[in-house]
Design a binder for these strands. Sequence first.
RNA 1: CGCGGGGUAGAGCAGUUCGGUAGCUCGUCGGGCUCAUAACCCGGAGGUCGAGGGUUCAAGUCCCUCCCCCGCAA
Length: 311
Amino acid sequence: MRIVFMGTPDYAATALKALIEAGHQVVGVFTQPDKPKGRGGKVQEPPVKILAREHGIPVCQPRRIRTEGVEALKTLAPDLCVTAAFGQILSQEILDIPPLGTVNVHASLLPKYRGSSPVHWAIVEGESVTGITTMMTDAGIDTGDILLQAPLDIKPGETAGELTDRLAALGAGLLLKTLKAIGEGKCPRTPQDEQEMSYFPLLTRETGAIDWRQPASSIVNRIHGLNPWPSAFSPSPWGQMKLHRAEAAEGSGRPGQILVASPKEGLVVAAGEGAVRLTSIQAAGGRAMAPSDFLRGHPLPEGAEQMSGEA
RNA sequence: CGCGGGGUAGAGCAGUUCGGUAGCUCGUCGGGCUCAUAACCCGGAGGUCGAGGGUUCAAGUCCCUCCCCCGCAA
């Protein structure tokens, strides 16, 4: 079976690696173009591209696969396409090319958490269980028929990065299982229940802005759900500060009020309901560290008592 | 060549402007006080100041090169 793989980040590379190691015939890979990333504007290659090159698989990086990638895909003549966090929406014209269709490995239990960042949103929303769904891609966004699903518990305090890694491994396995079932012509197909569906938008930097008026649990979930990217942040007496990890704590006060700030007792901030104990923070220019470490060298400025730029 | 901050004891920082004995808080080790303690008091150990080169009587500090970490913007 000639397979064309479409994906971009590590999550996708894990699936591609599984395909290759299982002996599937991956005849081509589509991934996002190299983009200037990070400091100094150096271009970086997507993990999927790097992996594909190591295995001598042809790589195609159209800016818009819907227009520039059609001919290339036709030439590869795939029987089946597999997508995983590709980052581009496929047109009907693209979907019509592989006779067996296009299988997507989505990191949620569909129809919940449709959209491009299901892992992050599941944590932000405080879910305790998520999972992987393999599905037939159609013209909608994550709306196609469900093939196989596998649940996965979200650990307390788990970050999106950690959960993504575990889901990637789970997804790789489920993908192989799905392809096997398709190959044997006995893969179940279940339409999604539109009544149960939920959709979450693309993450932006602003998604990470902490609103201290929210309940402590929501703030904690947001911090973990946006770790490591795009990262939760808040102004503070020490300047803009990234918040990497936190937990609910005793205490109350005006939202954003700094209740505790000492090397001994750490950093506790009042929320709309309850309080949040920050356990990993990062100031501009510095690395991530525990508040007790940070506070040793950066005592709370005189008169400062709010998580804001004001003193 | 996108803008910018940083690398000094196990941890977090000051000291660099203007060269002249390596500092602070915490931890750690020993001792003391206390019914007791993450409290308090006394004492100690622990540093190639990111690397290399240069200037100088003298470099953490000034000059050149390089390595590493990070914030913003994309």
